[in-house]
Design a protein around this nucleic acid. Structure first.
Lengths: 236, 236
DNA sequence: GTGAAACGCGAGCGATCTCTCGTGTTTGCC
DNA sequence: GGCAAACACGAGAGATCGCTCGCGTTTCAC
């Protein structure tokens, strides 16, 4: 053991440009297969076939099936960090709640429609051990951001309450996302609006008396009654 | 084919009392295994072992693994129909929204904690084909009940809107259920209250001006601010 | 040019899972 | 008591999947 110069990590593998290309190719293929069949049902042979390479080639770049999902999740998390940094970083203490929620939801939805794998891996079923850790990391990071936003909206609230509220918000979003992804066109837009309504109405009493908006006034502004169809100018 | 007296169903199997007992035993074992490992990861041998019988005995009562989950879902659906009939059948046009939602949520939660398998099978991942049909049936039935309740609350709403709202309500509940099941004691009770808050606040603007309750008044009554801890006398 | 290492292949090993089959035991009916 | 059918067993057939291994090809530093 001590004769090994690197105590823990062993990456003496010098990747060539070709190898990096194969890795990207394999991850893309894995995303495709995971999306359609889920993680457990996806076979490594199917991933290799989808990528147009042999099983042996796949295992030259990934030690096992789990590592593929982990690497995929890792890359996804980095892209998500960027997207969610934009979405949640500026707390905007002056913008109305409805706008803030709407903008955040729109960005989340956009990310998930751009990367369908994310949903497949999150709602993935029996993720054996290690993957759950990798996604817990992402989930915790998300919760942290929502907590920060909530704390700035509701300064006088115990941390436990903020954490719980953050979990509820994320749960609402995830449930709504499932509904959004199973619909198309105007119906999808309608569900997006419903997510915003649910979140806004849920958070409205919490932010209470904010800068310039009375409660009743804003409550009446949140698309009264059942949302008719899609609000104008959402994604166009 | 025409020589068979029964055109479609073939159940010439005369079950003895022992057989019925075994079936119940096997379903109970299957519920246990599905709960802990999920559907796909659960092996029929493990189910048989849990039930204390041999694999061959299992296949004397179920043609395949899928049939076990379907039969389990069927029995669960019947119990659920009863429970949800109680919870949603009386629309109670006079009871305040908060109470109606609270009662419905409490019963749903009670059912799910009594039958953890249901959650495992619903959020089950890759349910091969037939099972999804069986659960779609249940899901549709549930949606129908929620639709009926909503239609009575919001008479002047298009069917499409009612359907969408029902889906949103069920989605909220399912998301909340996941949070509830992952917590214990007072924290769990707090999440239950949050589900009620979310649903009540979401539906409040829709039911609009009902019999005797002003909007602002009821809005203020929905546990103002972030819920502190557990409401008194929920499950004790 | 040459040698070492990265890349690529695909048959197949070992493990696992669903489901079958031959055989023996128990139950219900006459 | 006797017989047919239901019940019970457990080894293993058949299929699949994760992953390996031996060998050939390409790339790159020198």
């Amino acid at each position: 053991m001590p004769d090994n110069p690197q105590t823990q990590k062993e990456q003496p593998r010098r990747r060539q440009a070709r190898g990096e290309r194969r890795i990207a190719q394999l991850l893309e293929a894995a995303a495709q297969v995971f999306c359609t069949t889920g993680y457990t049902a996806a076979s490594t042979n199917a991933i290799a076939r989808e990528a147009g390479v042999s099983p042996g080639t796949l295992y030259q770049f990934f030690p096992n099936k789990e590592a593929i999902a982990i690497e995929l999740g890792d890359r996804l998390m980095h892209e998500m960090r960027d997207a969610y940094g934009e979405a949640l970083a500026p707390v905007d203490p002056a913008t109305p709640l409805e706008e803030a929620v709407g903008a955040a939801v729109d960005r989340f939805i956009a990310f998930n429609t751009d990367h369908p794998v994310f949903f497949a891996l999150m709602h993935g079923p029996d993720m054996p051990g290690g993957i759950t850790d990798a996604h817990d990391q992402l989930h915790t990071s998300l919760i942290g951001r929502v907590e920060g936003l909530l704390a700035s909206l509701v300064p006088d609230a115990s941390p436990a309450d903020v954490t719980r509220t953050a979990h509820v918000c994320l749960g609402i979003y995830k449930a709504g996302l499932e509904l959004v992804l199973t619909h198309e066109g105007p119906e999808r837009a309608a569900y997006v609006q419903e997510i915003k309504n649910v979140l806004t109405r849920y958070l409205e009493p919490l932010v209470g008396d904010r800068i310039g908006q009375g409660r009743a006034g804003s409550a009446a502004r949140v698309t009264p009654g059942i949302t008719r169809t899609a609000p104008p100018g959402t994604s166009a």
